[in-house]
């Protein structure tokens, strides 16, 4: 990843004003808009389901999930993991 430090924007006062404006917008969205959106029934329902199921929806990799996805107990009943299931082929 290449990198460049951006040139300083023109005028400190202008920069501070722009930063303050951006922070105000962020505060408005995160403290005002998103909580209201979160209270909207479809979104609230989704959040409630995820919380009840203890799903870490923001997990980047499997190690961040609340429950490690290990081989399910039932899998051997449904799938032949390392061979073609002879019986089922005859069945077919």
């Amino acid at each position: 990843m290449t990198s460049v430090v951006p040139a300083a924007p023109p005028g400190i006062a202008t920069g501070v004003t722009r930063l303050a404006t951006a922070l105000a917008v962020i505060a408005l969205v995160w403290l005002g808009l998103l909580p209201r959106l979160g209270a909207w029934a479809p979104v609230a329902g989704h959040i409630r389901r995820m919380e009840e199921g203890r799903i870490n929806t923001a997990a980047m990799v499997y190690t961040e999930l609340e429950r490690l996805p290990l081989r399910p107990d039932w899998i051997g009943d449904e799938l032949a993991l390392w061979r073609l299931p002879t019986l089922s082929r005859e069945h077919r």
Binding site: M1, S3, V5, P6, A7, A8, P9, I12, G15, V16, R18, L19, A22, L23, I26
Partner: peptide, 18 residues
């Protein structure tokens, strides 16, 4: 937001080890 408003102050630049 910070880089494009107030910019990166000189004292911060050495720490930018992204």
């Amino acid at each position: 937001v910070i880089g494009n408003t107030v910019g990166v102050p000189r004292w911060l630049a050495p720490a930018l080890q992204g």
